[in-house]
Design a protein around this nucleic acid. Structure first.
Length: 510
RNA sequence: GCGGGUGUAGCUCAAUGGUAGAGCGUCAGCCUUCCAAGCUGAAUGUUGACGGUUCGAGUCCGUUCACCCGCUCCA
């Protein structure tokens, strides 16, 4: 539940219900009780998501905007594989930093790296309580020692104190252990492996030698193919490589419908440029990407740019440059905002790392500058799944006045169904004329034909599906070859000739 | 991961421990000349799953799964 803006209030429950009822999004594996963090796109959701993806591809790859100096920008596409050599993830920093066993404290809600926790006990005593502290943290050590001394009711000499690694404790011992930030015993969990990457095996033999990962981001596939693209596509820095595809993360807490799911889709551009131009391009891409989301129908009221604080910067983020997020005010974040896209300045971190790990040169020779260098990278990384959700939220328009009580106000460009053709009544030659028009229109767009039930129900159904226009054949149509255009948003009706319908639609659908 | 809540037809929801229902939607037929109209009829459920208590469980208990809310987390 949440307030979207001053104008409208929408509840996620209603949206989720409509998404299922109208075939946008279903819970994944539903007949088996579902699976936490996974969702399936139904027929309309698939069309919607594809339309957003195609719009992005068109607007970024085929017809990108002019660059900051008035020159056209150049972007080429790519579709790299989801499973890559596991060394990729060592180079990218995804393995290692996030691969450690973690210990949670049920009491203080803190989370510790198991190998950073040490235990304090009395020498030779294997019965008493064990007190943990954080490695290299004098305060934490002092606190543990104080608690231990209080427990045994006397001061300890330094040589009486026994320090051992937390990772050597048995489950029984953990049960009599006191966490660093609490006074009660047994609040720590056993060490658990947290790895946000999905592990799998390549080949039929499932040993560690064949372990691999499903990509947690599409970006790395672009860096891996940097040389290939430079060598084969006649691109010159600055240029971009774009990719749309699935990525997988074992999120700790999947939540909020498809906002944080474990399988999701990204639309990423890696923009390669000279370091000295990177600030200019960073600004350009922040602005370009914000405008693009607004062009997709997200109102500027609900979209904002936010700079990352220094403590939340990713490991790859260039120092001093940071990351800007394009954020959308989702119902479940309102009045706050949730991330839709991150525009990051990655410096030349990735190319340099892959060069180091692969021992292959990943450099570019800039003839104009007469300089060889690893280009710096600006990365506009957008969530396609999140964008789809934002557009669903934005389109959801309650309207007590109309029969459906709600309609989906999609921009025609992303609407899953572009138009519907109805005979006003299912007789007197009307179905035949309507069907003929439908047959023609569907060659160019997703257009539906419906002759069932009353005209009001058909309009209502199309309102919930977010179909912008309905063309209705009535008895007049049979005489004067005209049809009624019913507009979803205004409910207005206009007449035009049947032979004009295709052109009329073409003017409104790019 | 923690705490709280909710799971019954496609959707929204009823049902004292005692025969699983309604509205809407869907489908079929009739009807219908512009906004879920009307009439007739139909389909649809291992009551999220598994186990227990009971003569008998949608209802009580346990476990588990999923979703929602709040923390936590989020390269």
């Amino acid at each position: 539940m949440g307030v979207m803006s001053a104008q409208k209030t929408i509840s996620m429950e209603e949206l989720v219900s409509l998404c299922k009822r109208r075939g946008f999004i279903y819970p994944a594996s539903e007949i088996y009780g579902g699976l936490n963090g996974f969702w399936d796109y139904g027929p309309l959701g698939t069309e919607l998501k594809n339309n957003i993806r195609d719009a992005w591809w068109h607007d970024m790859v085929r017809c990108p905007p002019m660059g900051p100096d008035g020159e056209p920008v150049s972007i080429v596409g790519l579709d790299s594989s989801i499973i890559q050599n596991p060394r990729v993830w060592e180079a990218s920093g995804h393995v290692g930093g996030f691969n450690d066993p973690m210990v949670d404290c049920r009491e203080s809600k803190s989370r510790y790296r198991a190998d950073h926790l040490l235990c304090l006990g009395v020498n030779g005593d294997t019965q008493g309580q064990i007190y943990t502290f954080v490695e290299n943290d004098d305060e934490s050590l002092a606190s543990a020692r104080k608690k231990l001394e209080k427990y045994i009711k006397r001061k300890l000499e330094d040589e009486e104190v026994d320090v051992s690694p937390f990772t050597s404790l048995s489950a029984d011992e953990i049960a009599i252990t006191v966490g660093p930030d609490v006074k009660t015993v047994g609040t720590l969990t056993e060490p658990r492996q947290f790895n946000l990457m999905f592990k799998t095996f390549v080949g039929a033999l499932q040993d560690e030698e064949s372990a691999a990962y499903l990509r947690p981001e599409t970006a790395q596939g672009i860096f891996l193919n940097f040389n290939n693209v430079v060598d084969t596509m006649r691109v010159k820095v600055p240029f971009g490589i774009a990719q749309v595809g699935k990525a997988f993360r074992n999120e700790v807490t999947p939540r909020n419908f498809i906002f944080r799911s474990r399988e999701f889709e990204q639309m990423e551009i890696e923009w390669f440029c000279h370091e000295s131009d990177s600030a200019k391009w960073f600004e350009f891409w922040c602005e370009t990407r914000r405008k693009w989301w607004e062009s997709m129908g997200l109102t500027s009221d609900n979209v904002q740019m936010r700079s990352h604080d220094s403590d939340e910067l990713a490991h790859y983020a260039k120092e001093g440059c940071g990351t800007f997020d394009v954020e959308y005010r989702f119902p479940f974040t309102s009045p706050g905002y949730g991330e839709l896209e991150g525009v990051a300045h990655r410096g030349n971190f990735d190319l340099t790392r892959h060069q180091e790990f692969s021992k292959k040169k990943l450099e570019y020779f800039d003839q104009q500058r007469n300089e060889r260098y690893a280009p710096h990278v600006i990365e506009p990384s957008a969530g396609l799944s999140r964008g789809t959700l934002a557009i669903l939220c934005e389109a959801f328009t309650p309207d007590e006045e109309r029969a459906s009580k709600v309609f989906m106000k999609f921009q025609p460009r992303v609407a899953p169904i572009k138009a519907a053709v109805f005979p006003l009544v299912n007789k007197d030659g009307m179905p035949e004329v309507a069907s003929k028009l439908h047959q023609e229109l569907r060659k160019r767009w997703p257009v539906q034909f419906d002759a069932k039930q009353s005209i009001g129900k058909r309009y209502a159904r199309m309102d919930e599906a977010g179909c912008p226009w309905c063309f209705t054949i009535d008895s007049d149509s049979l005489n004067d070859q005209s049809v009624t255009i019913r507009d979803r948003d205004t409910l207005s009706q206009d007449r035009i000739g049947i032979d004009k319908v295709e052109g009329w639609l073409a003017e409104r659908l790019v």
